[in-house]
């Protein structure tokens, strides 16, 4: 039996809205540690890894680990029916082929439930080792989203280079070229305006902008985004889900052949 009650149900909707265009179907794995989701996009160039800890839920019961295969588009449709302040409760039987979502308004004067059919999805799981990245950039999520949007109008490939001065995003295309440099800023009055760069050694990597732009759909989740880079490794783009967990995106670099 699975029963999980999330007071801030809107977080679930923000997570699904952030990933549903990248991955269409995915297995949500539930265990005593919480909810996890790992899936690659169809081109196997990018990957999402989400974790919501069990202690994020007001009530969490998971008698035995289970994997719930879902269409993320259908899940998004169901979550769209929840009020932004609703409490969301998920229920599923161990051998069930459906999962039920219950939405309760804060004043408990409106309760609705939606039953979603589960699917059999055979997903390939990648082992992602903990990496001691050469460069870690924490910047305002809105700033990252704006850079992706602006540069996408100029080119489709971006070189991200992190040095001690800051992190530079460079692109070029038929229109011309563009550079955006974001400098370390640890003195901004508001914490959410700060940019923090932890550099072990300079690194520059090349990526397809359309994936980085897609990751920015997670902007409503958090005030900051963290980019972690190491030579010749995928970049990790991470949004914290408040203090409940994280939504991570990995993107394989483009390397001179």
């Amino acid at each position: 039996m699975l029963e999980a009650r999330l007071v801030q149900g809107s977080m679930l909707r923000k997570v699904v809205d952030a990933v549903k265009d990248l991955v269409s179907d995915a297995n949500i794995d539930v265990s005593s540690s919480g909810f996890s989701l790992q899936a690659m996009d169809t081109s196997h160039v990018s990957l999402i890894a989400m974790h919501l800890r069990a202690d994020a839920f007001e009530h969490f019961r998971c008698d035995r680990p289970m994997s719930m295969g879902m269409s993320l588009a259908n899940l998004a449709k169901v979550l769209k029916c929840a009020g932004s302040d609703d409490i969301v409760t998920l229920k599923a039987n161990d051998d069930g082929d459906t999962v039920t979502f219950m939405f309760e308004s804060p004043k408990e004067d409106r309760v609705s439930d939606f039953e979603l059919k589960l699917m059999d999805i055979d997903s390939e799981h990648l082992g992602i080792p903990d990496t001691d990245y050469c460069a870690t950039v924490t910047m305002p999520a809105g700033e990252y989203a704006r850079i992706c949007k602006d540069l996408s109008s100029i080119g489709d490939t971006v070189v991200i280079s992190a040095t001690k001065d800051g992190v530079k995003f460079t692109t070029s295309g038929d229109v011309g070229t563009a550079n955006v440099t974001v400098r370390q800023n640890t003195t901004a009055d508001k914490k959410e305006d700060q940019t923090i760069i932890d550099l072990k050694e300079p690194v520059a990597l090349t990526f397809a902008l359309r994936y980085l732009t897609s990751f920015a759909k997670a902007t409503p989740l958090a005030t900051h985004v963290t980019l972690s880079m190491t030579r010749e490794l995928p970049v990790m783009v991470e949004y914290a889900i408040q203090d409940m967990g994280h939504l991570r995106f990995y993107l394989a670099p483009k390397i001179e052949d």
């Binding site: 160039v45 990648l126 080792p129 090349t206 394989a252 670099p253 390397i255």
Partner: peptide, 14 residues
């Protein structure tokens, strides 16, 4: 022009 890699070149299936 740089070639797009795939994740399996960096991470192993488990």
């Amino acid at each position: 022009t740089p070639m797009q890699n795939h994740l399996e070149e960096f991470y192993s299936l488990c």
